[in-house]
Computed example of a mutant assay.
Amino acid sequence: MSAAFGARLAAAVDDHGPLCVGVDPHPGLLEAWGLPDDASGLRDFGLRVVDAVGGRVAAVKPQSAFFERHGSRGVAALEDVVAAARAAGTLVVMDAKRGDIGSTMGAYADAYLRDGSPLAADALTVSPFLGVGSLAPAVEAALGSGRGLFVLCLTSNPEGATVQHARRGAGADVETVAAHVAREAARLNAPAVAAGDAMGSVGLVVGATTGDAAARTGTDLEAVAGPLLAPGVGAQGAGPAELAAVFGAARRQVLASSSRGVLRAGPDAAALRAAARSAADEAHAALRG
Rank of each mutant, 00 (worst) to 15 (best):
V193N: 06
A84F: 05
F67G: 03
R43K: 11
V132A: 08
G226K: 02
T90L: 11
G203T: 01
R73Q: 13
A83Y: 09
M105S: 06
A172I: 12
G196T: 06
R69C: 14
A285S: 14
A225M: 08
R277A: 15
A214N: 01
A39T: 04
A195W: 03
G116H: 05
K61P: 04
H165R: 12
P227W: 09
A244N: 05
E175A: 15
D44E: 14
G144D: 05
G102Y: 13
R69H: 13
S257V: 15
S64F: 15
G248Y: 06
V224S: 01
V206A: 02
V181K: 00
A136C: 05
G71T: 13
A161V: 15
L47F: 10
A172L: 15
G34A: 03
V246D: 03
L143Y: 03
R43H: 10
A120R: 06
V177C: 02
K61A: 13
R147K: 15
A87I: 11
A58R: 00
A223C: 11
Y112E: 04
V163G: 13
V13G: 00
A250S: 12
A214R: 00
G55W: 06
A88R: 14
A65F: 15
A96Q: 08
L188I: 09
F67P: 01
D14N: 04
S201T: 04
E140A: 14
P231M: 08
A96E: 09
V75Y: 07
A285H: 11
F45T: 09
V92P: 04
R73M: 12
E31Q: 11
L152V: 09
T219L: 03
A121C: 12
S72F: 14
G22F: 00
D212S: 11
A244C: 10
D122R: 03
G248N: 06
L130Q: 13
A190P: 08
F129H: 14
A208I: 03
S127G: 07
L9C: 10
A269K: 02
E31C: 01
L255D: 01
V13C: 01
G22P: 00
N189V: 09
S40R: 13
A96S: 14
N157F: 14
M94A: 15
A12F: 01
P128G: 05
A136L: 11
A276C: 08
G17P: 00
A39I: 03
L143A: 07
L263G: 00
A109W: 01
P240Y: 08
A166L: 12
A182G: 06
G46P: 03
F45W: 06
S145C: 10
G74D: 09
A136M: 08
L228Y: 04
G232N: 10
K97L: 14
G232Y: 08
S258E: 03
R168K: 10
R69T: 15
P240R: 05
A280C: 10
Q253A: 14
G41Q: 03
G196Y: 07
A138F: 06
A166E: 11
L243Q: 05
